[in-house]
Amino acid sequence: MTGPGLVLVVVVAVLFAAGFDLLMQRSLIRIVIGFTLLGHGANLVLLLAGGGAGTPPLLGAKGPGSMVDPFPQAMALTAIVITFGVTAFLLALAYRSQQLRGGDEVADDVEDHRIRAEAHRREQARGAAPLEEDDPGPVDGA
């Protein structure tokens, strides 16, 4: 694979890598941007799967080359609509979080703190080695 096809594969890889990296952040706006980058990467993958240019998929159409498969193009249009809808929903969540909390950072789940504290208590009861320095341990009040 050389030329434009290789360039598009590299662009897809960069979009997916940046999108996944942003999805793992704690800021909702970064999550929205990451999801959008993943959507663009998926659209490029679908367009790459469609192959090169050809004759329009119409009965009786004549032109150079074979008929183009319309399925990847239809899937790309569907992916665009779905990405737009989910992005609008995530933006609404980020806006509401900004209004209610004054920020868009995703808070730790209280249940996660409780489970971590229970695991810490079980380790202490068994006489296991103390937690590593990097682990803050259970949060007070959890």
Rank of each mutant, 00 (worst) to 15 (best):
E123K: 09
A53K: 08
A117P: 03
D135F: 00
A117W: 05
A79D: 07
L46D: 02
M75C: 02
P56D: 15
R26A: 07
A107K: 14
I29M: 08
T78M: 12
A129Q: 15
P130N: 00
E118V: 04
P64T: 01
R101Q: 14
M1L: 10
L6K: 01
R96P: 10
G103S: 13
R101K: 13
Q124L: 05
R114N: 06
F35M: 11
F16V: 11
S97A: 15
V81D: 07
L100R: 12
L100S: 15
V11C: 06
F71C: 07
L23N: 12
H113F: 07
D69K: 01
Y95E: 14
A94S: 09
D109T: 02
V10G: 11
N43Y: 10
S66V: 04
V86I: 11
V12I: 05
I115F: 15
A119K: 06
E132Y: 02
A53D: 12
V32T: 10
L22D: 13
A88C: 13
A117Y: 09
R96V: 15
D134L: 07
G141V: 06
E118Q: 09
Q99F: 14
T87I: 08
R96E: 14
P57E: 15
D21P: 00
A53I: 01
V86M: 12
Q73H: 15
V139D: 14
D109I: 06
V9M: 07
G34M: 13
L22R: 08
A61Y: 04
G65R: 02
D134M: 05
A49W: 04
L8K: 00
A88L: 14
G39K: 01
T55D: 13
R116I: 03
L22P: 06
E132N: 02
G50K: 00
L15P: 11
V45I: 06
R30K: 09
G50I: 00
V106G: 07
L47C: 14
P70R: 08
V106E: 02
R126I: 07
G51T: 09
P70I: 05
P72H: 12
M67G: 04
E105F: 05
L59C: 08
F89V: 12
P4N: 12
A129S: 14
A49V: 02
E111S: 12
D112G: 12
V14Y: 00
V139W: 14
P136Q: 10
G34T: 12
S97P: 04
L100F: 03
D21T: 08
G39M: 01
G50Y: 03
A117T: 01
I33F: 06
V14S: 02
G102H: 00
V81H: 14
F84A: 14
V45W: 14
E133G: 08
R101I: 08
E111F: 15
V32P: 06
L6M: 04
A13R: 13
Q99I: 14
F71Y: 12
T55P: 01
G103M: 07
T83P: 03
A92P: 03
S66C: 10
H120M: 10
V45A: 15
L91T: 04
